[in-house]
Simulated assay, not measured.
Amino acid sequence: MELYNRVNREVLKQKLQLSDEKRVTISFYQYWNLNNPQLFRDHLYLKFSEVGVYGRIYVAKEGINAQISVPENNLEQFKQYLAEITFLNGIRLNVAVDDDGKSFYKLKIKVKEKILADGLNDESFDVTNKGKHLSAEEFNQLTDQDDTVLVDMRNHYETEVGHFENAICPDVDTFRDSLPIVEEILEGQKDKNLVMYCTGGIRCEKASAYFKHKGFENVYQLEGGIIKYAQDISKKGLKNKFKGKNFVFDERLGERISEEIISKCHQCGKPCDDHTNCKNEACNLLFLQCEECAEKYENCCSKECQEVIHLSEEKQKELRKQQDSGIRIFSKGRFKKSSSGLEKIK
Rank of each mutant, 00 (worst) to 15 (best):
L222K: 04
M1Q: 14
K15N: 14
E72F: 08
D177I: 12
Q289L: 14
A294S: 11
I85C: 09
Y29M: 08
H156W: 11
L238T: 03
S178R: 02
C293E: 11
V7K: 10
N193F: 01
I202E: 06
Q17R: 12
K321V: 01
K61Y: 06
F242A: 08
V149I: 15
D232W: 12
N35Y: 10
E255V: 01
E187G: 09
N140T: 03
E184D: 15
E292K: 14
E138D: 10
S325Y: 04
A136C: 03
E50V: 13
K264T: 12
N280P: 01
K13Q: 05
F249C: 06
E260D: 15
N89L: 00
I261E: 01
E314H: 02
Q323N: 10
Q306S: 15
N246W: 11
Y54A: 11
N129H: 13
H213N: 14
I64A: 01
D147Y: 00
F78P: 05
G333K: 03
E313G: 00
Q141P: 02
Q141A: 10
G201A: 06
E50G: 13
A167C: 07
S312Y: 05
K279F: 15
N246A: 11
L116V: 14
V219N: 02
V161W: 05
E184R: 14
L222H: 06
E183C: 05
E251Y: 15
K212F: 03
G269R: 13
F330N: 05
G269E: 11
G55C: 02
E62N: 07
R6I: 11
D171A: 13
K79G: 09
V149Y: 07
Y4G: 08
